[in-house]
Nucleic acid binder design. Sequence first.
DNA 1: CAAATATAGCTAAGCACTTAGCAAAAGGCT
DNA 2: AGCCTTTTGCTAAGTGCTTAGCTATATTTG
Lengths: 172, 172
Amino acid sequence: MNDPVELILKQWGQERPDLDVSPMAVIGRLARVVKRFDERLSRSFAEHGLDSASFDVLAALRRSGPPFVLSPKDLSGSSMVTTSATAQRLNKLENEGLVRRASSVVDGRKKQVQLTEKGKGIIDGALSTHLQTEHALLRNLDGAERQMLATLLAKLDVEGESDGLEKGVNSL
Amino acid sequence: MNDPVELILKQWGQERPDLDVSPMAVIGRLARVVKRFDERLSRSFAEHGLDSASFDVLAALRRSGPPFVLSPKDLSGSSMVTTSATAQRLNKLENEGLVRRASSVVDGRKKQVQLTEKGKGIIDGALSTHLQTEHALLRNLDGAERQMLATLLAKLDVEGESDGLEKGVNSL
DNA sequence: CAAATATAGCTAAGCACTTAGCAAAAGGCT
DNA sequence: AGCCTTTTGCTAAGTGCTTAGCTATATTTG
């Protein structure tokens, strides 16, 4: 038992035998896996001159289909970050020439963020690498296990009923 | 199908039918769940005047058992952050009077970070709230499902063989 | 033993996020 | 129409992480 999560559970069992720490087995493991996956995926993005945030934005534009236009508000929703973070991400991407911003004709408040040709080339290349990396990260699970995992996680990904206040994070 | 992850898969299927985007069903969901859990858990910590980073450090000291002493290096390992981040976390906790730092007698390089009485009181209170929150976050899974989820995640939490370079993050 | 190397802890600078708050445009209400 | 509220996008300031690089102590090696 040299697994860090198992060790933590054992320590709590000795120090606080009065508590049920079993939820940590799931949530602690979740945090570890995501942290490690993030680090690995970041390296794939870097091969294409991107970071996670930039990939996030470009992928959202790419999968929206022609003409590859979304508003900053849309992008915030799909990325689970604030509109402020999105504005800063777009500043960077615009400087790099991967997106361009234009004002909407029908609604003067809205901006239209569009993928440039250069941006489209970058994201299509990065996407291929990204999927290879994701596939490698899941190599220890067979098809049935992946399906099971996706299903279990989906059950955890629900708006917090009966849980007190909640932040409505997603909208897209 | 108003689920964001399902929508993303559908969009990719239309725009890039040549690609197998199925890994996103797992990894995208993982990222979402962890992000939401983090936000919820942060609110629990805040009830005790803590943030996630502070809870992380105090909990590691608490579960190590009397005399509640670890080195900064130990704390970095269990927290999956750099020693630099740990030093900054400790500065904050020391200012708040929740830990104290002393030099090791046997090895002048090492410091001994110890939980204060005040720190122990805070973490014991926060731990109780934390476990209640974690229990609530998992309310949609029964015992067998939690066990299954923990097992599947553990299979993903392995040092990356055949995956290129890796960072040895954990040691505790 | 002395010099080179490794280990431990830290600060400084950079980066991406957050919250707070501003400005412009749209929509609602009397 | 005119005011008030909402929506949208943004900048400024603050936070916590990272990498780079420093000092001090311990260990290894010639």
